[in-house]
Design a protein around this nucleic acid. Structure first.
Length: 831
RNA sequence: GCCGAAGUGGCGGAACUGGCAGACGCGCGCGACUCAAAAUCGCGUUCCUUCGGGAGUGUGGGUUCGACUCCCACCUUCGGCACCA
């Protein structure tokens, strides 16, 4: 659609300018910004605050391009908010405790601390090369004693308030990492360690837990949060709330046996009971004749891994205990079985089996010849017969064979049964959660020691606050043995009891590193504060976090822990407000050029250092924003980056070559076109940066650059409108490509720094179109496009459309039945 | 099996609230500059076409004057959960 204007293009001699050389300018500006503390965030109550946070990196040693992808666009948005007048805090730090440090230490015979702090050095250098606006004065490192002193302090607080407790229970153990794991850190169908993908096994151990389940209901409340729906859903499913009733059955011997059910209405259809093999009543219930079979089955279950046991498609197995229970609603005597499809870890570890209406119970009943008794008759279905049914019937209907509730429709029956149970005192309304308490003990060295002491006289005693931190000894043998290396240290664990003064032992396990990262956003407020975990004044000004960005993979780990942590702290009077992070946005993942997840073993890792060396930080930043939908990610494509290289080169040349241009005669039409494009770009860039749509911001700025090239060719280079466009272009580039923007800004003689300038103001009048293309359709098909004034009336639009020759031809003389006019867009003629 | 996200040119991706599908860029083609090449600049680039037009946003249906966009069913890919009583 080349517009032939018939005008002669201006091809005046272009001033010669030096080439754009990112290497020459980037490190200079980085040093300059840092020396001037340009990004230092200081409390300023005259401006609205904005706490912008990206998930802190683990100290693995090398950033990969994925870190850049997560951080550079976030940085751009933080910078944008700052230009909009917010007082922005954008901190950075390191998640520095954890297993990889120990594993690396073992392989290379280097101390985990040395390895970690060397890595931090390198990562600081890499992070600085991005040119982000981090406030390094707020840097926090979770492995520093001045940090973990407060991690331990939080532990003591949780313990003091009954939210941390020690319990012996079967827990997930990774044989490769040689430590226990939280339920969240065991992943996938084959129940493997989240970190090393080794299948976990069960071990019975004394471990510390946090009572996250006390907050289950509150964790389901997202009303204060602007978080992505999928994350909220993941957390909702993870918490797994189900409503129903608890009902107390009794064994024939008189022992109470509690069950949980979501379908109390089917109580009259319970024809047997099933206990988990680990259920404490099993031994007592078992009759002497059944004892051998039961014992064999229990042993067999113990030997099984979780993978074998929890495979869904496996045929159900179980054995009869010989014992009987009494159904409290009808007094019936029903057999008690044990089976491994009932899990000790959910509900009460015991169920009533209603084979007619539950598929699992049905399969079990058919296999072992147990009675199937329907108690619900769905409408329009043949009368159910327990003997001939081929599968459980889960449809709703009217209740049958159910004593006082017979005839009740199921939608009322659940409520009425609960009322009946409560009235008779045999059960009550109850809620169950899938969520388990958070297991935080780790049998490893490189973590924050749990600040507890075990005294033979006084039991478990907390370390007094004034003795924190409990420092990690450096002279340890950190080879993993399955026991904490701290336990094997000759002297460290020996101490005196703070209560009685007698000899006592320290807890030798360390804390899950997710504990450290649950509160790092608080440590950034005042990383060197020593009167508490954070300075309350800083808290009051900065908290809560306004925008948080990171990967969706943390939905059921870090993000649920940190919410729990905040709420627990709120209840202890330490933090305020319902939530720690108000807005969350997830970036996608950058894959290797082969479309596979980047990994050293595949050899497809893209090293940001190399990219920066080849193209410069600004180009890498802009490409990461331009080449992908940020929330999606995708494979690294080494070809597409050339588009960004060319763009920055063109901007460089355009700005410098026109810098000294003198005003000359111009056509006002072209001036208007340039102004219009500029203000349309401001509108779009503002909107898109607010909405994390970085790719279209860059596209819009490229379009503006193209428009400016055309304007220049029309002789506008010396015109004030052109100067304004240059200035605004640089201002809008500043968040995305901070170095080149600053360099060109300074070469134009503008005041340092561009990053302290306000965001360009949008003027809707200048953005408005005077003339638009009116699309004319006949029966919904485009037949013509006509240029009309933007404010054209409906009648006029209709008339102009009907007058079109192309339209006439397609109407073939027919009368229009209906004409739809959409203001400023189209006319559709229906014949 | 259940829950969720995504399917648009050769490629990455645009398209506000239902109103010109393919912005911007990569790649490719042609041209200018050059002894030549690179770089740069200009033009073109969804497919088919009898040059009138026709088809087209994973597939099939529906709603509507009009559907990438809304509804129903299905297919594919990715992610989560998985005997949760």
């Amino acid at each position: 659609m080349a517009e032939s204007t018939g005008e002669t293009e201006i091809t005046a001699e272009r001033p010669r300018v030096e080439r754009y050389d990112p290497a020459a300018i980037e490190s200079r500006w980085q040093a300059c910004w840092e020396a001037d503390e340009l990004y230092k965030a200081v409390i300023d109550r005259s401006r609205p605050k904005f706490y912008f946070l990206t998930m802190l990196p683990y100290t693995s040693g090398n950033l990969h391009i994925g870190h850049w992808y997560a951080m550079a666009p976030s940085d751009a948005r933080a910078r944008f908010k700052r230009m909009q007048g917010y007082n922005v805090m954008y901190p950075i730090g390191f998640d520095a405790f954890g297993l990889p440090a120990e594993n690396a230490a073992i392989q290379r015979n280097i101390h985990p601390k040395t390895w970690t702090y060397q890595n931090i050095e390198n990562m600081r250098r890499q992070l600085r090369s991005m040119g982000a606006m981090w406030d390094w004065s707020r840097e926090a490192i979770s492995a520093d004693p001045e940090y973990y002193r407060w991690t331990q302090w939080f532990f003591l607080k949780l313990h003091e308030h009954g939210l941390a407790y020690k319990k012996r229970s079967p827990v997930d153990w990774c044989p490769k990492c040689n430590t226990t794991l939280a339920r969240e850190q065991v992943v996938g169908e084959d129940r493997v360690c989240e970190r090393c993908k080794t299948p976990v096994i069960k071990k019975d151990l004394d471990q510390w837990f946090f009572r996250i389940t006390s907050y289950a209901d509150e964790l389901l409340d997202f009303s204060h949060l602007d978080w992505p729906e999928p994350v909220k859903l993941l957390q909702t499913n993870w918490v797994g709330r189900s409503e129903g009733a608890r009902v107390v059955f009794h064994t024939e011997g008189g022992d109470p046996m509690e069950i949980f059910t979501t379908r109390p209405d089917t109580l009259w259809g319970a024809t047997f009971m099933v206990l988990a093999p680990e259920h404490p009543l099993v031994e007592k219930l078992t009759t002497p004749e059944r004892s051998q079979a039961v014992r064999a089955y229990v042993q067999q279950t113990q030997r099984q891994t979780d993978i074998e046991r929890e495979a869904v498609d496996r045929e159900k197995t179980g054995v009869f205990t010989g014992g009987y229970a009494i159904n409290p609603v009808n007094g019936e005597r029903i057999p008690i079985w044990i089976a491994d499809y009932v899990l000790m870890s959910y509900g009460t570890g015991a169920i009533m089996a209603v084979p007619a209406h539950d598929q699992r119970d049905f399969e079990f009943a058919r296999k072992y010849g147990l009675e199937v008794r329907p108690v619900i008759q769905p409408e329009g279905m043949e009368p159910l017969d327990g003997g001939s049914m081929t599968e459980a019937v889960t449809e709703y209907g009217a209740m049958i064979n159910s004593g006082p509730l017979t005839g009740t429709p199921v939608d009322q029956a659940i409520e009425r049964t609960i009322a009946y149970l409560e009235e008779k005192g045999i059960g009550e309304r109850a809620v169950n959660y899938r969520l388990r308490d958070w297991l935080i003990s780790r049998q490893r060295y490189w973590g924050a020691p749990i600040p507890m002491i075990s005294c033979p006289e006084c039991g478990i005693v907390p370390v007094p606050e004034d003795q924190l931190p409990v420092e990690l000894p450096e002279d340890v043998e950190w080879r993993p043995t399955g026991e904490s290396p701290l336990k094997l240290h000759p002297t460290w664990k020996n101490t005196t009891c703070p209560r009685c003064g007698g000899p006592a032992e320290r807890e030798t396990d360390t804390m899950d590193t997710f504990m450290c990262s649950s509160w790092y956003h608080l440590r950034y407020l005042s990383p060197h504060y020593d009167k508490g975990p954070f300075d309350p004044e800083e808290y009051d000004y900065w908290m809560p976090v306004d925008t948080y960005t990171g990967g969706v993979e943390h939905a059921t780990m870090h993000l649920i822990y940190t919410r729990f942590f905040h709420k627990a702290c709120r209840d202890m009077g330490i933090t305020k407000g319902p939530e720690p992070m108000l807005q969350l946005r997830n970036q996608g993942q950058i894959l290797g050029p082969d479309g596979q997840r980047m990994s050293k073993s595949r050899g497809n890792v893209v090293d940001p250092d190399e990219q920066v060396k080849t193209y410069g930080a600004d180009t890498v930043r802009a490409y990461l924003m331009f080449g992908y939908r940020w929330s999606e990610g995708g494979p690294w494509n080494p070809d597409n980056i050339h588009g960004v290289v060319r763009w920055l080169n063109r901007v460089w040349a355009l700005v410098l070559e026109t810098a000294g241009a003198e005003p000359g005669p111009v056509d006002e039409k072209h001036v208007r076109a340039l102004q219009r494009k500029l203000h349309q770009t401001i509108r779009q860039a503002t909107h898109d940066l607010d909405n994390f749509e970085f790719n279209t911001v860059v596209a819009a700025l490229m379009e503006l650059t193209n428009a400016m090239s055309q304007a220049r060719a029309k002789g506008l280079a010396g015109h004030p409108a052109f100067k304004e466009a240059v200035q605004s272009l640089l201002l809008m580039m500043a968040p995305l490509t901070p170095h080149i923007a600053e360099e060109l800004w300074s070469r134009l003689g503008k005041p340092y720094s561009i990053h302290q300038q306000p965001w360009p103001e949008f003027n809707p009048e200048l953005a408005a179109e005077e003339e638009i293309t009116l699309v004319v359709q006949v029966n919904g098909k485009v037949r013509d496009r006509i240029r009309v004034p933007a404010d054209i009336s409906e009648e006029e639009a209709r008339a102009r459309a009907l007058a079109s020759q192309a339209v006439q031809r397609h109407m073939g003389g027919a009368e229009p039945r209906k004409i739809i006019v959409v203001r400023g867009r189209l006319v559709n003629i229906v014949i």
